[in-house]
Amino acid sequence: MDAYPLRLTAMPRPLVFGGHEIARRLGKAGLQDWAVAETWEVSDVEGQGATVTNGGLAGTSLRSLVRDHPEELVGPGWSGAFFPVLTKIIDASGTLPVHLHADDETAQRREGQVNGKTEAWHILAAAPGASALCGVREGVGRERLHEALLAQDFDAVLRRLPVRAGETFYVPGGTLHSFGPDTLVYEIEQTSDVQQHAMRWEMEDGADVPDEEWHANLDALLAEVRLDPRPEPTPGLPVRLGDGVQRVFYCAGPYFALERCQAGTAAPLRRNFRTAQVLTNVGAPVEVRTPAGVETLGRAETLLLPAALREVELTGPADVLVGYLPDLERDVVAPLLEAGYSRALVATLGEGVAPDAGAPLAG
């Protein structure tokens, strides 16, 4: 594989809860002048996959790169039918529908899918008083949940949590959730579009859902919901690397990890890696240096760095989100333990990290 930083098609989605904040607040260029709810920055979802737009691989689908060059693209020893990580920018100027994504076991059993969708939300901006619904309240069973969904009384059964810029929610598959209005989110998740909705309206155009279809949707949702996850927002664990240079670990689990890498003007940020890195710029334009050359990453733009590149340098000022499929012990636990954090604190970033050295890995 000709390894170099890959620019991909970023698909905008004009769903009813969207607005103009991805362009106005983040500065993303090239969007049409209509309300955009989401831009899919890196996607290998069936029927909605990205295509390379730069260099010698221009016109090549992400799916075909995964098929032909799995280890060079994703990482040594990796194999799979599609790229494992999906990333989005979400403008919840309105409120998202209350919905869930099945976990792996449920998606395989009920949806005929290879995997479900665990996700994480990194809050880029939120108005004062902004909130999210995330998880079922303790003590609420399926019958009580069904009654509340029929009444569309979500606050009676779901946890409402405040959201603030800089916080991150790790949301396991099967968790009922929603967020917005007035919230701008970077989302990283398993590659999947499996979902069940509780609303009486369609998120594509706001049209009414017929009664029979709505009741069937609720039945499917109740069959796939998990009552136990109760995610809490986390501020992240920062690791200082040098003068004005740091990486902040925001979430980590078996499916993805997310960091925010920042550098001032005194020194660049240097990063070595063994798995593909998804870089999304949430600051001013930044120079991205790799063994294949230099790329300028504009505002709210994304690069996919193939694993074969192995290293990257960001010249500050830089403020970049970095998502990847981790080896949890190597990529997350080891650097955080070295920085002085306990395993128990590292375990709060998501799932799959044993809270003490003698415990087996979960997930």
Rank of each mutant, 00 (worst) to 15 (best):
T9Y: 03
R13L: 13
L15W: 12
V16M: 06
G18W: 02
G19Y: 00
A37F: 03
Q48D: 15
G49E: 14
G49Y: 00
G55W: 08
G55P: 10
S79E: 13
P84M: 01
P97I: 02
D104P: 02
E105A: 15
T106Y: 07
A107K: 01
A107W: 07
T118Y: 10
H122N: 07
P128G: 12
L133N: 06
G135F: 06
E143I: 05
L150D: 13
A151V: 00
Q152H: 13
Q152K: 00
V157A: 08
P162C: 06
A165D: 11
L184H: 02
Q196L: 13
R200G: 13
D205F: 02
H215D: 10
V225N: 01
R226D: 14
P233A: 15
G236C: 05
R240A: 15
V245K: 02
Q246T: 11
R247Y: 09
A257D: 11
E259N: 13
A263E: 12
A266Q: 14
A267S: 14
F273K: 05
F273A: 01
A276E: 11
V282T: 14
T296F: 00
L297E: 13
L305I: 01
A307D: 12
E311I: 04
V312A: 14
T315N: 11
A318V: 01
R330W: 09
V332T: 11
S342H: 08
V346D: 12
